[in-house]
Computed example of a mutant assay.
Amino acid sequence: MEGYLGSYAMLGLVLAAGVLLFVAAFGANRLLRPARPAEPAGKRIPYESGIDPVGGDWAQAQIRYYVYAYLYVLFAVEAVFLFPWAVIFDLPGFGGAAIAEMAVFVAVLALGILYAWRKKILTWT
């Protein structure tokens, strides 16, 4: 399959093979599954770690867990940016500008954690 249309023909063959595989898998599933699967009486109730469900299905979550998760992601991203900077810091061409940019970056994040600390977001109460 050479030429301009050869790559389109190859793409068409790959897509056709994918569709054929998809249809064959679902056809085999339809042929091999039981016609009327046995359903015990409690099969469709929610599973809660082996404990019978009690009450309704709506529950309120504490917002502080989301704040902890958000702060974790924020400082994990900070670490992702700090490590490559530390690796290339001593290479030629990365002088005072690199230090100043990273100082601004760390200062903004430090202000964020200082704000969270002052608002007592980081306490488990």
Rank of each mutant, 00 (worst) to 15 (best):
G3C: 00
L5T: 09
G6V: 02
G6Q: 01
S7E: 04
S7Y: 05
A9G: 00
L11P: 00
G12F: 06
L13H: 03
V14P: 02
A17R: 10
A17D: 11
G18C: 00
G18E: 03
G18F: 00
V19S: 12
V19M: 13
L21N: 09
L21S: 04
L21F: 10
V23I: 13
V23L: 05
A24N: 07
A24F: 12
A24Y: 09
A25K: 15
A25H: 12
F26M: 07
A28L: 15
N29H: 10
N29E: 03
N29V: 08
R30H: 09
L32F: 08
R33Y: 04
P34F: 03
A35I: 12
A35M: 11
A35H: 09
P37F: 05
E39Q: 10
E39H: 13
E39P: 00
P40K: 05
A41H: 06
A41R: 11
A41D: 05
R44M: 09
P46M: 02
E48M: 05
S49M: 07
I51W: 07
I51G: 01
D52W: 15
D52Q: 14
P53V: 01
V54C: 06
V54A: 10
V54K: 10
D57M: 02
Q60A: 05
Q60L: 04
Q60I: 03
A61P: 07
R64D: 06
R64C: 01
R64I: 12
Y65C: 03
V67H: 09
V67S: 03
Y68D: 13
A69P: 07
A69W: 12
A69R: 15
A69E: 12
L71G: 04
V73D: 08
V73R: 15
F75M: 06
E78Y: 08
A79N: 06
V80Y: 15
F81D: 08
F81T: 14
F81G: 07
F81E: 11
F81M: 15
A86N: 06
A86C: 08
A86M: 05
V87L: 13
F89H: 14
G93V: 06
F94E: 00
F94L: 10
G95Y: 04
G96R: 10
A98D: 05
A100D: 07
E101S: 11
M102L: 13
A103H: 08
V104D: 00
F105G: 03
F105W: 04
F105A: 07
V106R: 01
V106C: 07
A107C: 04
V108G: 03
L109Y: 05
L109F: 06
L109G: 06
L109K: 02
A110D: 06
G112I: 09
I113G: 04
L114N: 00
A116E: 01
A116T: 01
W117Q: 15
W117M: 11
W117L: 11
R118W: 15
R118C: 13
K119Q: 15
K120I: 01
T123A: 03
W124G: 00
T125Q: 14
T125V: 11
